[in-house]
């Protein structure tokens, strides 16, 4: 049965909230403003943290895809779907913050910066993951197909990044903000926000997996309910 006692979650949520408070403090008060770009550079901390969460999610999706294909255990499929969903949400945030950060610095909403392009293509791949998930009825077939999609998507990342970098090598190489060496307080701010987002990722993944498992349980119960009355009736006659 699904453990519906929620005791671990509040503890996790409070600890994540604390980490977030520390991160906000570190980013806004502890870390100095960056000389060249000024305040706007502070977007970078959470921008990179979102990217970390997205990367963690897609790695989990790939690993659970391989695990499903090997073990054929549907719990891996549930974990994979939860991970991809979180990954998609945070990739959207990465793109949003990337553009909002790029606009003032390079006065263009979108630059074909290799990392941003990779995030964009990743966004399409894992959006396609959900389109595929909606197109297949049988659970085991859907799980196998989605596992392959998650693996293919993850395997594609290095190639996308490599080709985006090669693609750009024609354009003049723009000085990249994070290339600037980080003053120690900046580094601590970055590390704290990375930790906060990693904790957040843990909470979201746990919750999403429980929700998907609950939905599956409901489907099974409904299925049994549809059959139950028929058998009950026959037994009586």
């Amino acid at each position: 049965m699904i453990p519906r006692t929620r005791n671990p979650e509040p503890v996790l949520i409070t600890c994540t909230a604390l980490l977030f408070a520390a991160a906000v403090y570190a980013v806004f008060f502890h870390a100095p403003a960056e000389r060249v770009m000024g305040l706007v550079q502070k977007i970078f901390y959470f921008h990179l943290s979102c990217a970390l969460v997205a990367f963690l999610s897609f790695t989990t999706a790939c690993i659970s895809g391989v695990a499903y294909l090997v073990s054929r255990d549907l719990k891996w499929d549930v974990l994979g779907a939860a991970a991809v969903e979180i990954g998609l949400v945070f990739t959207t945030l990465v793109l949003a913050t990337g553009m909002l950060w790029g606009r003032p610095v390079w006065n263009a909403w979108w630059t074909w910066d290799p990392r941003l392009t990779t995030s964009l293509i990743l966004w399409f791949i894992f959006a396609a993951y959900f389109i595929l998930r909606a197109a297949v009825e049988k659970r085991q077939q859907r799980a196998a197909y989605c596992a392959v999609m998650a693996i293919a998507g993850f395997v594609d990342v290095p190639i996308v990044f490599l080709s985006a970098r090669l693609w750009r090598s024609i354009h003049p190489v723009v000085i990249r903000a994070d290339g600037v060496n980080m003053a120690p307080p900046m580094l601590t701010a970055l590390l704290v926000s990375l930790a906060a987002f990693a904790a957040l990722w843990g909470v979201l993944l746990r919750r999403r997996v429980r929700i998907l498992a609950m939905a599956e349980q409901i489907r099974i119960l409904e299925h049994r309910l549809d059959r139950e009355p028929a058998q009950a009736r026959r037994a009586r006659y």
Partner: peptide
């Protein structure tokens, strides 16, 4: 369904 799954993955190949 196929183009939606296929194009994002082969994007780098097309670019190259």
């Amino acid at each position: 369904l196929l183009p939606m799954l296929f194009f994002p993955l082969v994007m780098p190949l097309i670019a190259m």
